[in-house]
Design a protein around this nucleic acid. Structure first.
Length: 943
DNA sequence: CAGTGAGCGAGCTTCCGCTTGACTT
């Protein structure tokens, strides 16, 4: 990246001697904010919003300006060969808005860039200045709370653009682009097209996968204990109970093992001084304690105190809305957006827990009115940010305004009401007093018939002053967890008091594997690790769901086997990139850049080109690509078995001794146990029985195959034992008839009649020159066959209807020319190509309309229209196409340099190293079985 | 994961962060 040219100051704050009169254009990020601020600034100010970023790297080929198309780095939008210079374009959905901003600026005397005061906001301001190219003075205005005073103060205390901070943002942007746009194609080649990888989503996926791995590796431990109900036998006051529950904690001084004493492997962490009770031991101990005398050994009282929770920021709001309102992260943000736009709450994408002074006053005032002045502390509470990389551009999420409306006063309803109420309560509670009380631990001892000393404990909690808990109690993810306002009262017992055991029973427990992530807990985990930003938390979940990396089971996020494959590939070959600390290290570096202490280019260069012993990204996705064996990264052994789980282009399956069986897509990986696997092998899945062929008596089934859905007949199954094997071999000569489904059919709806019709193919149409002519369905669709000669049919239906006379006509025409000639009549004739001078025509082809000059062909793009396309545009398309052609050749030339695939199975399907190179030399197949032919071409991980 | 007979103009997918409508079901 070249250094940013110019500075905001250059445009002359010295010219701004005037205060009255004149028009000042203020640009903020959000339209709702613009509306509010306009009210505070009043006359002389026009406030407009940028609606987020206005420029960015090009997203796709269509956004790359023509003059850069031929550049080798155009695909990335970053000139990696020239100081990582980024190529910025105004995004297509922002063009109209940027035009509007320019028009507003034409009437302005001064420009105030009032975007958020964080890394992205500073960058938006810089992009605005670059794109609007103002000739008037430019000022950078910042504020982090939206009150009249704060805004007016901000307008009078402007500063210059912070260019090092802009550099930090740009570096972040470039890194994310290089990571995403270089690693994703690796997944397309090695796992499945359209997959994606990125700094944030790949780590999020990895977290979910690792949790599932822990669950798979988890071995539960069983442990037993005793539960007793003691009677205090005294006259307890009415509000206290006379009995209480206590649990066995030790026997003769040896502590009884409980869940946390066991490892994930189900063994005791330390057996020293521990007693691990099994069922027999627990029951016999209970029997020996039958009728024993018990007494209180000790009573320990401690003050209990609980402070209020900090006001909401994005993640905590998402968590609580999930726990209490059952809203997804996305739903929460949508509802919050509406509340924000209509002026009910402050901005909802924030990492700050800070309240403005006026908000603190409003919360205290409301708390005092609703719960009494004794519930409000003398001094306002201040919440420090818990988030390490917080950028604090906004306040916490709270009710808007200088005095809060109660939920009832808002007139809201439904989810908006409930979310507002949540925010309101949390905000008010945050300025209330601590809850205080007392916690009590009572120890009880008794001696068994064989002289063992058994000790029990019970804990109680009494809240004497509820404080903030009257307003708000935080929810818990674990349904068994005890909420903060829950009391447990014990009878008022004293040391030495005799007790009677009303009940004594053995209780069995077992340790549980770590819980799966929910949307909210995954977002929290990401925030704790400083990965992602408030504006992206909800969409991260959306991305990994869309890619099929995770699916939801209730509220739990379950990783797919596809996610296991992708994560395995990334861990093995891009370990650095999916390291949990990668983002944290990046943030440190960005901070250095923002402080002007480090330059970004050397850092990006190390990342992309490598340095010293470290391999750069470019080499990992380039020369070292062949080292990634797609079959290997998509394979997982099922522990303790010789079964291999594989992820194929058509979903997960298992393989053992050449036998294969599908794994249901919605089966959670930790549920694929050995037993489950055997069950799946026992009943080959995916088949749909359609009925019996009356002609043969054989069952007909429909299933999914390598080339898509097909029907087949089931031959009698030979007995599985070894004695029957020779017999089976002799039968192997009989192959079942098979046939692909027609395009109009689907596995769910196909009938037996459809299937029988398909199985009747190939159909003998008749004879031409004593040679039989058949109609059949093949790799490229329906066709007629006569000896070694063939002709394609136009429709699948023709296989069943074509007559011998029609067949004669078809064979009378030369092979491919016949159909192609008809199809290649020009749709439209254009002028001469600017480069070659040849006349250009628009034709219609397999892939839609294209322009050709006789030599070069180029498809029309999105937005190009056959009727209205100009000669200039057509020439441009042809020029682009010509520019690309040599690149393809070099790719093809590279092929022999790669190591030939060693394994037979991979060689056959052209996997791995040879696979990618092959695409240049192998003829592309066309018409219908594109998925299948692509699979065969660039190497599906399964054979 | 079924198993067959071409020859020809593909182009695209994807990242993370800012922010809202304008679209379709």
């Amino acid at each position: 990246m070249p250094p940013k040219k110019g500075s905001a100051g250059e445009n002359g704050s010295k010219e701004t001697g005037h205060n009255g009169g004149g028009n000042r254009l203020v640009i903020v990020e959000s339209p709702a904010k613009a509306k509010t601020i306009a009210g505070y600034l009043g006359r002389g100010y026009v406030v407009e919003s940028s609606i987020g970023h206005i420029r960015d790297l090009p997203n796709k080929a269509a956004e790359i300006p023509a003059r850069y198309k031929g550049e080798p780095w155009a695909r990335l939008g970053v000139n990696v060969d020239n100081a990582f210079e980024p190529l910025y374009v105004v995004n297509s959905d922002k063009k109209a808005h940027v035009k509007k901003l320019k028009e507003l600026m034409a009437d302005a005397d001064e420009l105030y860039l009032a975007t958020d005061e964080d890394r992205e906001g500073e960058a938006i301001a810089w992009h605005l200045r670059e794109e609007l190219n103002p000739k008037i003075p430019v000022k950078r205005m910042v504020f982090n709370e939206i009150t009249k005073d704060a805004i007016r103060r901000a307008a009078e205390n402007t500063r210059d653009l912070n260019l090092p901070l802009v550099n930090a943002q740009e570096t972040r942007r470039i890194l994310d682009r290089l990571y995403g746009y270089e690693v994703s194609p690796v997944l397309w080649k090695k796992v499945m097209p359209k997959l994606s990888a990125g700094r944030v989503q790949s780590v999020a996926t990895r977290l979910v996968v690792e949790r599932e791995r822990e669950r798979i590796a988890f071995t539960p431990a069983e442990y037993w204990g005793l539960k007793a109900v003691f009677d205090a036998m005294g006259g307890a006051p009415a509000e206290d109970p006379s009995t209480f529950v206590a649990h066995l904690v030790s026997v003769d001084g040896a502590r009884v093992a409980v869940g946390r004493d066991f490892t994930a492997q189900g063994v005791l962490r330390s057996a020293e001084g521990m007693l691990h009770l099994d069922e027999t031991a627990a029951r016999s101990l209970a029997a020996r304690l039958e009728g024993a005398d018990y007494a209180v050994r000790s009573v320990e009282r401690k003050p209990y105190k609980r402070s209020p929770y900090a006001p909401f920021r994005t993640t905590t709001l998402q968590q609580e809305a999930s726990r209490k309102l059952n809203l997804s992260a996305k739903q929460t943000m949508q509802v919050a957006q509406r509340l924000y736009e209509n002026g009910y709450i402050t901005y909802m994408r924030t990492d700050s827990t800070t309240l403005s002074d006026s908000a603190v006053a409003a919360a205290r005032d409301q708390a005092a009115r609703l719960y009494g002045a004794d519930h409000v502390p003398a001094k306002p509470r201040v919440y420090a940010s818990k988030v390490k990389n917080a950028q604090e551009a906004h306040e916490a999420i709270r009710p808007a305004g200088d005095s809060f409306r109660t939920p009832a006063e808002t007139g809201l309803s439904g989810a908006e009401f409930r979310l507002y109420e949540l925010i309101w309560k949390r905000t008010v509670a945050s300025q209330m007093k601590d809850a205080v009380g007392e916690s009590v631990t009572v120890k009880v001892a008794g001696t068994s018939s064989t002289g063992e000393l058994a000790e029990f404990t019970a804990t109680g909690k009494i809240i004497t002053f509820h404080g903030f808990l009257k307003a708000y109690v935080e929810g818990a993810d674990d349904p068994n967890a005890e909420l903060d306002d829950r009391e447990r009262r014990l009878p008022p017992v004293d040391e030495g008091d005799p007790l009677k055991a009303e009940q004594l029973e053995a209780e069995g427990h077992s340790t549980r594997p770590p819980a799966r992530y929910t949307e909210a807990s995954l977002v929290k985990e990401l925030e704790d690790r400083e990965i992602g930003r408030p504006s992206t938390y909800a969409s991260i979940i959306g991305t990994i769901l869309d890619r099929g990396y995770v699916f939801k089971k209730g509220s739990a996020l379950v990783p797919s086997f596809l996610a296991f494959a992708v994560v395995q590939l990334l861990e093995r070959h891009f370990g650095n990139l999916v390291d949990y600390d990668f983002t944290a290290r990046m943030e440190d570096m960005l901070d250095d850049i923002a402080r002007g202490e480090t330059e970004s280019v050397p850092w990006l260069r190390r990342f992309y080109f490598g340095s010293g012993g470290e391999t750069g990204l470019k080499e990992l996705v380039g020369d070292q690509l062949g080292e990634i064996d797609p079959k290997e990264v998509s394979s997982f052994p099922l522990p303790g078995t010789d079964i291999m789980i594989r992820v194929g282009r058509y979903g997960p399956y298992m393989e053992r001794d050449g036998q294969r069986v599908n794994v249901p897509e919605d089966l959670a990986p930790d549920e694929l146990t050995e037993e489950k696997a055997e069950e799946l092998f026992a009943q080959p899945s995916g088949d749909r029985e359609l009925g019996t062929d009356p002609a043969t008596g054989r069952p007909v089934v429909a299933r999914n195959g390598r080339f898509g859905p097909y029907v087949t007949e089931v031959l009698e199954e030979p007995a599985a034992d070894s004695e029957a094997k020779p017999k089976a071999k002799s039968k192997a000569a009989v192959k079942p008839r098979t046939a692909s489904l027609l395009k109009s059919m689907s596995l769910d709806t196909i009938t037996l009649d459809d299937a029988l019709r398909l199985l009747s193919l190939p159909r003998v149409v008749g004879e031409i020159d004593d040679e039989p002519v058949t109609a059949q369905n093949g790799r490229f669709g329906p066709y007629l066959k006569k000896g070694t000669d063939s002709r394609s049919l136009e429709t699948e239906e023709q296989m069943f209807t074509v007559t011998i006379d029609e067949a004669k006509e078809i064979f009378a025409k030369p092979k491919q020319r016949g159909r192609r000639a008809a199809a290649s009549a020009p749709l439209r004739e254009l002028g001469k190509d600017a480069a070659t001078g040849s006349p250009m025509v628009i034709k219609d082809g397999r892939f839609g309309p294209y322009v050709t000059d006789g030599e070069t062909n180029a498809s029309l793009r999105k937005g190009d229209d056959v009727e209205s396309i100009t000669d200039e545009r057509a020439s441009e398309l042809l020029a682009e196409r010509r520019a690309k052609a040599p690149a393809k050749k070099t790719a093809a030339k590279k092929a022999p340099a790669k190591k030939p695939a060693a394994k037979k199975s991979t060689a056959k399907s052209g996997t791995s190293a040879s696979g990618t190179a092959k695409s240049g030399t192998t003829k592309a197949s066309g018409t219908r079985r594109t998925a299948a032919s692509r699979a065969a071409k660039d190497g599906t991980p399964k054979s």
